[in-house]
């Protein structure tokens, strides 16, 4: 789409961004890289009368780590580009699951423009399942104050807010853990997701533990709690795999499009789960 009939505002900081949003009468939207929004507009969604550009905001552009209550937390500014996030040593070393899933988003040039905040805030970004598995939290500004909550809760919110940081708490090292984030697209790379599934198996004191999240395409990613519950605290030898994949197929609720039906997506999600399960079993006897 060539020149738009819309007014562009540039905010110095998050407070000014919020003020602008409150002051303009007509429709408006926050915009960072604009890579997601432009795709929507091209596909027929009407663009708003005002764009509030967040790119000039100096804060929330770093990735750093802190010691919080003796555990390490990794903080990712919402305005950090996907590319930077992908390459950052803290992400590469301590959150490889996130690094891997960012590596499957778009292509390098788009990742240089698109941000991690924009990926999450659009609600269907490919980084979300991995972040859910990592139990990520977010820092956000709701117009009044800056708050911290789990990503899972934030995704459920209906009201507008500005994402500021993604916070990942380093997982307890568990010897027998296995984590995965798989994206199946229509071609090998540079394609929208058909199924994205991420998870983590481990053995805890009270048995097997599973965290599982799935999304893909227009499907809003979420934790698959019922499937998790079937697995959790079970003895690894007696886990009823058939029943679990059956539950996964019921619980995962993908949205179909012109290319792939729900059924296919469910089947693939279940198959991927089985493969990861086998990998884990092989890895840890």
């Amino acid at each position: 789409m060539r020149t738009l009939e819309t007014k562009v505002w540039s905010a110095k900081d998050i407070y000014e961004a919020w003020e602008i949003k409150a002051s303009v009468k007509d429709s408006s939207v926050f915009i960072m890289g604009g890579t997601f929004l432009q795709t929507k507009w091209e596909n027929g969604v009407q663009y708003p009368d005002h764009l509030i550009h967040l790119g000039e905001i100096k804060e929330y552009k770093q990735i750093y780590s802190l010691q919080e209550h003796q555990v390490k937390t990794i903080h990712i500014g919402a305005f950090v580009s996907l590319a930077e996030c992908h390459k950052h040593p803290l992400i590469q070393n301590d959150c490889s699951l996130l690094a891997d899933s960012i590596g499957t988003i778009a292509a390098p040039a788009v990742r240089n423009l698109g941000t991690i905040g924009g990926n999450i805030a659009n609600r269907i970004g490919d980084s979300i399942p991995a972040l859910l598995v990592l139990d990520a939290e977010v820092l956000y500004f709701d117009g009044n104050e800056i708050k911290r909550d789990s990503l899972e809760n934030w995704l459920k919110q209906k009201e507008d807010s500005l994402l500021l940081e993604i916070i990942i708490t380093e997982q307890k090292a568990s010897v027998q853990s296995h984590q995965f984030a798989n994206k199946v697209g229509r071609r090998e790379a540079f394609t929208a997701s058909v199924v994205t599934i991420a998870g983590r198996f481990s053995i805890e004191e009270n048995g097997v533990s599973l965290i599982l999240a799935a999304g893909g395409g227009e499907t809003i990613p979420r934790r698959l709690r019922r499937t998790e519950n079937l697995v959790n605290h079970q003895d690894i030898e007696t886990i009823p795999l058939q029943q679990i994949t059956g539950e996964l197929i019921k619980e995962y609720n993908p949205i179909a499009d012109a290319f792939f039906a729900e059924d296919y997506r469910r089947k693939v999600a279940a198959n991927l789960f089985m493969v990861e399960w086998e990998k884990w079993r092989e890895k840890h006897g």
């Binding site: 795709t39 091209e42 596909n43 229509r186 071609r187 090998e188 790379a189 540079f190 394609t191 929208a192 012109a258 290319f259």
Partner: peptide, 25 residues
């Protein structure tokens, strides 16, 4: 990969986001 899909005489695949040609991978 490729099909210029139509539904009731209208294209479903309107650009390279939905009409996929092979990429380098």
């Amino acid at each position: 990969l490729e099909e210029a899909q139509m539904e009731e005489g209208r294209y479903v695949t309107n650009n390279f986001d939905s009409y996929l040609i092979p990429g380098i991978q």
